[in-house]
């Protein structure tokens, strides 16, 4: 009892200070989070869901087959494309927008000539990330529930005890990813010629 009283008396002088210091942060969090949640409720709600969690739902909706795989890829990836696009749009240098307006650009011209190319590198990065995510979505979907596809093949090969087929499947996946990566980089070089010089 005595010790409790002691701790209480030592903590009380500190107590009034703590909330006073924390209040600004509390206000910001209190105002900001609901505001953000109201602005993009879908993003806040769907963002935490890993793509695998969509598998049961899509099977219930669409059964097993190609449409279900497409749905998995879409549901697992659109959110990343959206987030990358919104973020990179927000990061376009406001000075460049001001400069464009000063040179007589209309709203539409600012979108086309400044915001789109300014956000493009970020959007393409988002697409590359999405590509990797989509690929693992497909394979997961195929391994969990599918009759055909590379993922299904590897899964079945395991049941047959066919080690060679499992390995061949994995090498195929690896090569596909490498090729897809190369293609994405090529697209990036073609679409962002100015970035090439910046890196050099």
């Amino acid at each position: 009892m005595v010790t409790t009283g002691d701790t209480a008396s030592t903590t009380i002088p500190l107590a009034p200070d703590t909330p006073r210091r924390r209040r600004p942060l509390g206000i910001v969090m209190g105002v900001w989070w609901p505001a953000k949640a109201l602005v993009d409720p879908f993003v806040s709600l769907l963002r935490p869901l890993p793509s695998i969690t969509w598998i049961p739902l899509t099977i219930l909706w669409l059964g097993i087959g190609e449409p279900q795989k497409t749905a998995i890829v879409f549901l697992g990836s659109w959110i990343y494309i959206l987030i990358y696009t919104v973020e990179s749009t927000r990061r376009v240098d406001p000075l460049l927008i001001r400069a464009a307006r000063n040179l007589g650009a209309s709203d539409l011209a600012v979108m086309r000539e400044v915001i789109l190319p300014g956000a493009l590198p970020g959007i393409l990065t988002g697409l590359k990330v999405t590509l990797a995510i989509s690929w693992s979505c497909v394979l997961t979907a195929e391994m969990v529930a599918a009759q055909n596809g590379l993922g299904a093949l590897i899964w079945q090969a395991k049941d047959w005890g066919n080690l060679a087929l499992v390995l061949v499947g994995m090498v195929c996946i690896s090569i596909t990813v490498l090729i897809a990566d190369r293609l994405a980089n090529l697209a990036e070089r073609l679409l962002l010629p100015w970035e090439r010089h910046r890196r050099a």
């Binding site: 400069a99 000063n102 000539e113």
Partner: peptide, 30 residues
């Protein structure tokens, strides 16, 4: 924002994705 008063920014504010040619053509294009 008044396009008849053209601003030359200290930090250049050139469009990095446009070539010299396209940067200079921007005003006439608009």
């Amino acid at each position: 924002i008044e396009p008849r008063c053209g601003m030359v920014f200290q930090s250049y504010a050139l469009f990095p994705w446009k070539t010299v040619q396209a940067n200079v053509e921007f005003g006439p294009k608009m």
